[in-house]
């Protein structure tokens, strides 16, 4: 991309933490020498979703019918579409109860109240459009953005991380939160890249970067360890679903462990 690359940062339903993380990078000012912002409502008043862009960063889950239309439009206008953060990539924490009906959740929160927009259950954007690259995390690390952006700008393609948080945790020399402290750490199934941020504070990983892809997230083997520590199947599924509610393999792999043992 020899000329200034055109970028857009779009939000669906989310906490805006991904954009905030992006906007807070000191390096952004430098990067803007090579970037033109076509659409980024959080910082640019002169923003327009109808403009063509080279890279579209999309944050948030698809949670209204209006957002389905928006991402289809963005797909048409963008050369590269990047799903940013757990909501866009995995449907986010708002998918935690994805098996409940929309009507049930609506009733609990809004009662009989009605609004003029059309809500839907949260979904990842890849359910509706082709996504070219994912930036993981809730929120993503700043270096995730720098790496992806920098790589695109030199005309190359960023690589995906395919190993778990445990790898980075071991490298930092942390005592194991799962084995030594006996806490339900999701490090073994969660995509690395955060430098084992939470386990380094002695806090069990809650899996905010989502399960490792390429079918190498061993939900079953971790479920077995959790089971041995006394967790029930429901407790295990609930915890693993916080950031992986839409994962196709999760349930059957955990099921396997409980069928074997009973």
């Amino acid at each position: 991309m020899g000329r200034k690359a055109k970028i857009g940062f779009y939000a669906l339903t989310s906490c805006y933490g991904c954009q905030l993380q992006f906007a807070m990078m000191d390096e952004l000012v430098q990067a803007l020498e090579n970037l033109g912002i076509e659409c980024w409502f959080m910082i640019e008043r002169d923003s327009d979703e109808d403009r063509n862009v080279d890279i579209a960063f999309i944050e948030g889950s698809v949670s209204t019918e209006e957002e389905v239309e928006l991402i289809k439009k963005i797909r048409e206008k963008a050369k590269i579409v990047v799903a940013v953060g757990s909501c866009a990539v995995h449907g986010g924490v708002q998918s935690w109860e994805k098996d409940k009906s929309l009507e049930e959740l609506w009733k609990i929160v809004y009662g009989d109240g009605r609004v003029k927009f059309k809500p839907k259950m949260a979904e990842p954007i890849s359910n509706y459009i082709k996504v070219d690259y994912n930036v993981y995390g809730c929120p993503p690390e700043r270096r995730d953005f720098l790496y992806a952006l920098g790589t695109f700008l030199v005309g190359s393609w960023p690589e995906d991380i395919d190993y778990p948080v445990c790898v980075e945790c071991r490298l930092r020399g942390n005592p194991c939160v799962l084995i030594e402290k006996g806490e339900p750490c999701l490090g073994p199934i969660t995509r690395a890249g955060c430098d084992a941020r939470c386990p380094s504070y002695g806090i069990a990983c809650i899996g905010c970067r989502g399960a490792i892809g390429y079918d190498v997230a061993w939900f079953d083997s971790l479920a077995k360890t959790f089971k041995e520590k006394g967790l029930t199947k429901m407790e295990i599924l609930e915890r693993m679903r916080i950031f992986n509610a839409h994962n196709q393999k999760l349930e059957e792999m955990v099921d396997k462990i409980f069928e074997e043992g009973e």
Binding site: T13, S61, S63, E66, K100, E104, I108, V109, F117
Partner: peptide, 12 residues
Amino acid sequence: IEGPRFFEAITI
């Protein structure tokens, strides 16, 4: 127009 996320409901 931000979509609903039902935080109180999903944590029950």
